[in-house]
Nucleic acid binder design. Structure first.
Lengths: 340, 340
DNA sequence: TTGTATGCGTTATCAT
DNA sequence: ATGATAACGCATACAA
């Protein structure tokens, strides 16, 4: 049945220790021996037994650090649930977690979070703010032998091990498709996002506009505004936008501030025959879906993102093998009133 | 850190063997000893280490049987992918699978499938045809000590260990919600299903009608027809239905036969301003979504169903513990052209 | 009724 | 450069 190190050792006429050294690149092996072991291992299609690896790894003391710009953003509640569930599922091993959160897009706060745990962790999972300083800090960790993965937001230029998150462009395309189905492809649209700098939001808007151009000539984007992901600000800018453009009958909201924007629509008495499409499944959004103002919200499986991140990182630490895919892309889920 | 049998044994002043006997109800233990061990174990919140269990269980020879009415139904392709992926993921253990498929709703064929593997398997995963004979056969297996779980379709009255599948009622509600968003809550609807006997389809239709009544007074269901999940038959009955009811401008298809029905709509030249909502993501459906006739399809994560079923059953066989939840309900996913 | 020894596959340590 | 051995937590066959 299963091919084991023991079997390989017997066939090669060496000890298990030597096979282990070869298979895990620990050095101190004669070249010929190494080649022979590798050949036989490949021939027998050896795959290590994770159960045994996990069991044996139990003496190590793994601590995974988790850094998130979570404060004031309900999206991360679910992500963290997935993280803690993963910790439970990996209870056989007994990993520790250190979770550090900061507010919004405060670069310095995130850097401080990283530094405060850097010497305590075996690995880091981070939702990075798109800033060169953060990228440099990540790269430095990696050079010091601490593997880093990104979650929810990627920094493609960095040396991070892997990314777990959504395809923002496709999310924008899906949002556009939904709005088209609902409106029959005819709408005057206002767009909101956090700022012009948030990479994910930019891609969501680009995806949206791409589908507009290709398939829906009667979609008119009349105005943009930025909310800084703040509810109050969202309320204000939406009010101004709607006053200025009385033809607008649909909002596409790429970031948070959804609840504030919806309240503005209602405050102006424009919520009849008005459609809102947004992202994420947070309490304020659920309320507005039940009210019927938001017709659909696109979700990126925050629970799965948190859960998979921890599992992948654990596997890497135990097995030393990177996940085959450098990116684990979660689905864009459409939620409406009936399946919210 | 982790609480182990060894630790409990030390604290109780007994041997590891005795603790094992208590924790696994193997008998032959003095009452007082048993109570003490149980008390300490609970106190320390002992949870067995799955990695160790899996490793130790490797000498057993587990074979899981899988019986599906899969022939002629592409839905099961993805379900089986999930099954085989689970086998890979559990490769450390080396379980064997025996997959048996039959066609449509052929009760005798399914019974034969069960019988042909009954003496070779340690457990059975089955998508059961709703028939008293199948239920009885399942119950008999269980009485003979072979655990059985249901997938995709449940038999609630039976003694099956657990169910992995969708909430059909909610699927129907979601379908209705989507159709309402697309049509503005105004449509003349024809409904198709496999037969009046398929429990899942009945619930999908009931869920749909419930939402109709509660929220969409301008949804008129004008006709029903049955397709026997056959494309040719679907084509014919749809043609007849549409000829008879020229006002129909939407189809709600609870089962398969989707492609045939769509071809009928096109053959009659009715595909302009016509909306189809259906279930599952199979090649014919994808084609019709791209054509724009089907506006949305509701998916029940077939891959996940297959994958989880095998994992749960494996866990049960190894640990002897039932999953906490008797039902693992997958999500109803909405797919449209942009996220198909 | 209870205890002991051995093995599952891998890794780490110590000895050679 | 290589081999031998103990340990990870659990299950089980055997001994007492």
């Amino acid at each position: 049945m299963g091919v084991t190190i023991k079997k390989i050792a017997e066939l090669c006429g060496v000890s298990r220790g030597t096979v282990d050294r070869v298979l895990n690149n620990r050095g101190n092996v004669k070249k010929e021996t190494e080649e022979k072991v590798l050949r036989i291992a490949k021939q027998l299609n050896y795959t290590p037994n994770m159960a045994a690896k996990t069991l044996a790894a139990r003496r190590k003391n793994i601590t995974i650090g988790i850094v998130l710009p979570a404060e004031g953003n309900d999206f991360f509640d679910d992500l963290l649930k997935g993280v803690y569930q993963a910790q439970k599922e990996l209870g056989d091993y007994g990993i520790s977690l250190i979770v550090k959160t900061s507010k919004g897009y405060d670069v310095e706060a995130q850097l401080e979070n990283i530094d405060s745990i850097a010497d305590k962790i075996s690995a880091l999972i981070i939702d990075p703010i798109s800033d060169i300083k953060v990228e440099q800090r990540i790269n430095r960790l990696i050079e010091n032998g601490i593997p880093v993965s990104t979650v929810n937001t990627d920094i493609e230029g960095s040396k991070r091990l892997f990314y777990v998150g959504s395809n923002y462009t496709k999310g924008g395309e899906t949002a556009c498709g939904m709005l088209a189905l609902i409106t029959g492809g005819k709408a005057n649209i206002g767009i909101l996002s956090a700022s012009g700098k948030h990479g994910g939001h930019i891609r969501r808007i680009n995806g949206f506009k791409k589908v507009c151009q290709e398939k829906y000539p009667d979609f008119n984007v009349l105005a943009y505004a930025t909310t800084n992901d703040d509810e109050i600000q969202a309320y204000e800018v939406t009010k101004n936008m709607l006053r200025e453009h009385t033809e607008i009958d649909a909002l596409y909201i790429a970031g948070s501030g959804v609840y504030g924007a919806c309240r503005a629509v209602i405050a102006l008495g424009r919520d009849k025959n008005f459609n809102v499409i947004c992202f994420d499944r947070v309490p304020g959004t659920i309320e507005m879906i039940e009210k019927g103002l938001i017709k659909a919200t696109i979700c990126q499986q925050p629970y799965t993102q948190g859960n998979r991140s921890v599992h992948f990182m654990f596997n890497y630490l135990v097995s030393g093998a990177k996940p085959e895919k450098i990116q684990y892309i979660v689905k864009n889920e459409i939620r409406i009133a009936e399946n919210i």
